[in-house]
Design a protein around this nucleic acid. Sequence first.
DNA 1: ATAAATTTTTAGATTTGTCTAAAAAATATT
DNA 2: AATATTTTTTAGACAAATCTAAAAATTTAT
Lengths: 228, 228
Amino acid sequence: MFTFGLMEIELSQAEENYLKAIYSLFVVANKAVSTNKIAEKLETKASSVTDMVKKLSDKNLVNYVKYQGVSLTTEGKEFAIHVIRKHRLWEVFLVRHLGFKWDEVHEVAEQLEHVKSRKLTDGLDAFLDFPRYDPHGDPIPDKEGNFIKRNITVLSALKINEESKIVGVKDSSSAFLKYLDNAEIKLGAEIKVLHKESFDNSMMLLIEGQKISISQQISSNLYVKQND
Amino acid sequence: MFTFGLMEIELSQAEENYLKAIYSLFVVANKAVSTNKIAEKLETKASSVTDMVKKLSDKNLVNYVKYQGVSLTTEGKEFAIHVIRKHRLWEVFLVRHLGFKWDEVHEVAEQLEHVKSRKLTDGLDAFLDFPRYDPHGDPIPDKEGNFIKRNITVLSALKINEESKIVGVKDSSSAFLKYLDNAEIKLGAEIKVLHKESFDNSMMLLIEGQKISISQQISSNLYVKQND
DNA sequence: ATAAATTTTTAGATTTGTCTAAAAAATATT
DNA sequence: AATATTTTTTAGACAAATCTAAAAATTTAT
Ligand SMILES: [Mn+2]
Ligand SMILES: [Mn+2]
Ligand SMILES: [Mn+2]
Ligand SMILES: [Mn+2]
């Protein structure tokens, strides 16, 4: 339950990007994040990360012990989630109102997420009618920083005959998203696993009545929600 | 007739702000702009301006001769107008769709104007249905950089019994805009000059049927278009 | 338990944009 | 025309964010 309380301090774009990176790496690893991983994610050098992490630590936004990785403090997490909120709201706006495709929004949202104005963010949220998911199926934090934690699985983990709905993408690279567009695989599509090929782990699916085969590369990057 | 042609180079926010400042100072002065004036406008020091102006000169965006002031090159002007286009389009968006008042938009537009994406700018323009003026009555350049050059006068210059329409504000400070809101003076209002007080240069006006008196401070900061 | 490999940090440099204080040039005053 | 004032530029410093190369710590392999 975050309240985005003590956010008088203004962070630089670089600082915001670091917090966001640390947040998302922590979510998957579930333990303190290494400087190397952060460097890789932000396409920078580990030495730069060490410097920045020290600065964020001085500002009480991360917990950092030399050689032992980085994690976010409560306040750091609030900031990270707030930036993610802005990023995803802008993505919704771009797709819904400006004719962007879901593979075109990332770079622009990466810039827009750093614009500082409470009124802007909350106004945009209201204008969009408080969307709960972004174009890639990722949940959008509300103004208090709360967001839905869904019970999702990766498609490749489903067993034969299980039915589910596509709700998100793990990889949101332009290449993967374009592949999905081409194959007419959309979020919201109902699917059923017809067959799993043990040789290459490819899957035969029934998507909205259509029978198609997808490689493991694909199935392991699609999130599904199992029908109850 | 600008075509926004050679804009492969990416400018920093600081560079963009300098170009915009030089542009608007040049428009009023109509001659090379001094480093001091630029410093004042950008709330920085003249020595910083000298440094930046040298850099912009190296990039062929400004004409600069030591001790003789600064003017924009064709390319510099293109950039400046493009930033102004973005600034004003965002202002329209904020007022029309996010519930901002005209005195609240400037600071946020100041940030949004630096977001780099052709598709975003042109998409926003289309979404807003190609607005020709921003909330303060300033013309919005189109994607080619062309904009309406209107035949406007300052209200204080009108003579008794002349009729005209309020079309813009010279001062767009929050204080002035709030005063106008309070006095219910809006863009588009039809006015007639009833009387000019020679003692303090105040004016008695008929605005949309209402009789009101305004000081010269006010009348010299309102743009009007005379009825033909 | 040592040695080798990998990861992380430090040291020192660079770029961008800013500042203060001093020098130089331009402008105004006598 | 000489002097005083104002404007503009230069010189040197600093903070932010980055880099490379070297040192230190940790982890892995023998
Ligand atoms: Mn970003
Ligand atoms: Mn997304
Ligand atoms: Mn700006
Ligand atoms: Mn405006």
